[in-house]
Design a protein around this nucleic acid. Structure first.
Lengths: 220, 220
DNA sequence: AAGGAATGATTGTTGAACAATATTGATGTT
DNA sequence: AACATCAATATTGTTCAACAATCATTCCTT
């Protein structure tokens, strides 16, 4: 049950579908999304489509140029740096103030287990999903719907960056065990250590991401 | 120069105007915003108006009920608690990791001075604005456009809550001097103390807000 | 080959139309 | 008078067609 969002307005459902395309990497960064083509493709009116475009633009997944149309956002060094700055702030703060019996800790441990299974099975995109789940669970420690919503937006933007990588394996695989350490520290209520560990984790991930981005944009 | 946003799409400009009405308290919480009435009022088409409504709904300022229309969001205990949780997380984290020569510190000091002037002049709404400026400057310490944008959204939602108060003076006035202490601590690079002070500040503000909200909703 | 006007395509915005749903009001029953 | 039923009405949800404004391209002139 993918929870199709039957009751929701058309524009919201449309935005979901397009977002799915974006994070699945089926639309390349910088590509222009023609209103005519997409309203044809999804069999909706141009007006409804425009509403969806506007929502995705607000989420940072699309860029809107006046009188020129909407384009798939292209990740830049600046955006990657900003995204990881957000992640360090939010995730570390969530860990630091976590209640040591919070339900999300269970979700974190489950995500780690899932990640290990997938890694051992060689299912790299599965490892990626498990990793995303893990970090979403960290955010849930903060018990704030607004923070969680915001993180989802950031998360989608980050997945757009992942689309640039040729080899997603190297990005996520080494982090599975670090996730394990973090949740172990948290279970022992060593929140400060957990946060420090996560901070190191995120710095490493950021450097990896930036290096890959550099390599992907230099030889153009 | 209110920076009218000439080049921006109509929907964005509309959203701004309506947002301004909302935070100015000219639309009461729970009120239904008829598409016909508003498209008439702003002299735009229903389609354009609907785009603007969708933007504001995503910002949490409006609520959208299927086939019933959009309503001005009504602040609840839950939303106030969540908003202050976000503020504690973001603002305290920003203080903790602030670079002690960051330009935003100057902006903070200026906002404090402005707040004192306005308070002494008895200009309470001016005190409120200066206070908002002060906290936006704290967020700017984090140097993240995404966080700043997110905080703006939270800030607008909070102003919607302020609209419920009969006596805005009591809410902001006592905080001017606390702001002063915070910026002083920060100038001495006592970031941890500044964060602790802000945390206490926000707890106090939250309690005040909740009490007022209770008083405003109980005797209905 | 450079500049510039004419052409064509796309976006920006509107107005009207109609289906689907919600609200209101009238009607009739108890 | 209170209540359910159902038609009438108003509002939202969505589409479509139109046109102005702007961008992109082509072709012509020099």
């Amino acid at each position: 049950m993918t929870e199709d969002g039957q009751g929701l307005p058309l524009a919201d459902r449309l935005a979901r579908r397009i977002r799915a395309l974006l994070i699945a990497g089926e639309l390349s960064p910088g590509q222009r999304l023609s209103e005519a083509a997409f309203s044809e493709r999804f069999d909706v009116s141009r007006n409804s489509l425009r509403e969806a475009f506007r929502l995705l633009t607000k989420d940072g997944l699309l860029r809107h140029e006046a009188n020129r149309g909407v384009f798939v956002a292209v990740p830049t060094m600046a955006s990657v740096i900003d995204i990881y700055r957000v992640r360090r702030m939010l995730e570390c703060a969530a860990l630091r103030q976590a209640w040591h019996q919070h339900a999300a800790i269970g979700a974190m441990r489950d995500a780690v287990a899932e990640g290990r299974e997938r890694r051992d099975a060689g299912d790299w995109t599965g490892v990626g999903s498990a990793n995303m789940t893990f970090h979403a669970a960290i955010i849930d420690l903060a018990d704030s719907t607004r923070i969680s919503e915001f993180y989802e937006r950031i998360s989608a933007e980050l997945r757009l960056c992942f689309g640039l990588l040729k080899d997603p394996a190297h990005l996520h695989a080494p982090f599975v065990d670090m996730n394990g350490e973090i949740v172990t520290l948290l279970e022992q209520n060593k929140r400060e250590e957990a946060a420090a560990q996560l901070d190191a984790y995120l710095n490493l991930a950021e450097r990896t991401m930036l290096k890959t981005l550099e390599r992907a944009s230099e030889p153009s």
